[in-house]
Design a protein around this nucleic acid. Structure first.
Lengths: 137, 137
DNA sequence: TCATTTTCTATAGTGACTAGAGATTGGCCA
DNA sequence: TGGCCAATCTCTAGTCACTATAGAAAATGA
């Protein structure tokens, strides 16, 4: 059995975060030692790795909860799980698109400062006037 | 003079957000009508547009505060403003890079479900086992 | 046995808002 | 001038996914 510290080291999830996931219902309430400390075995470790991986992929706690509920019913069709993954993919693509536009504009702003005093600074002027932007956002 | 509602409509910044920016010190405390309602003129509107634009570009409230402080001292060199813009650019590029890796993996996960029941679902299995990932994150 | 480390609970803080309650003010129409 | 309703006011709490802190109890190693 692992202590919460062991589990934390093995999964790379911080201790308070593990307790937080338990509180949020992503992890079942852990078994306890005689002295009331949490003890974990392999299944909990796998579950936590699942959660960690999903979080890294940008899934919300809520989406992860859905997936966990799903996996508790292995006889159901997996369309739902596919849908959740597809939604994440769409969300990620939108974020990338938005950031690309920002990158373009920041690049323009950050490299074009003509004056050497704030009063002539291109950064300041560009931020003040949206109409200096080339793309819209 | 504009009411807070007028200002909100003209800038596209929601009313509670305007009050929040005032509280955070990004906007000076507004002039008030006899009945204690906020009244705004052109300079405040410009300032708010500046803030909005900067937020859209991903600058934090703190970074915006720095820029505002900077612009209050027009005689200073604009290196600082350049630095802030450059930092933002770096941050945005890192975010894009990270999201690209996630996109790649989600794409793989979301399109490869072989089974039609949860117990065979690729999504679930991929999330459980990081070592199924092609790139690292 | 003692000291150090780990863990426990509970609470508050983060950032950038958003939502709601309950009270006041402003503007318009008759 | 009165009445009405929308807009505004302040204040508090909620959001998300943690992170940090305090003070107490348990576990471990010398």
């Amino acid at each position: 059995m692992l202590t919460i510290g062991d589990l934390s080291r093995k999964t790379g999830v911080k201790i308070p975060t593990i307790r937080y996931y338990e509180q949020m219902g992503l992890l079942d309430a852990a078994e306890r030692s005689e002295g009331n400390q949490r003890r974990y075995a392999a299944p909990e470790r796998e579950r936590l790795s699942f959660i960690k991986h999903a979080r890294e992929l940008g899934l919300t706690i809520e989406a992860i909860r859905e997936l966990i509920d799903l996996s508790a019913h292995p006889e159901r069709p997996c369309e739902e799980a596919d849908r959740i993954a597809a939604e994440q993919l769409t969300a990620v693509r939108e974020k990338i698109e938005k950031l690309r536009r920002l990158e373009k504009e920041l690049k323009r702003i950050a490299t074009r400062c003509a004056g050497d005093q704030i009063k002539d600074c291109y950064v300041i002027r560009a931020l003040a006037h949206h109409d200096m932007c080339e793309s819209d956002h």
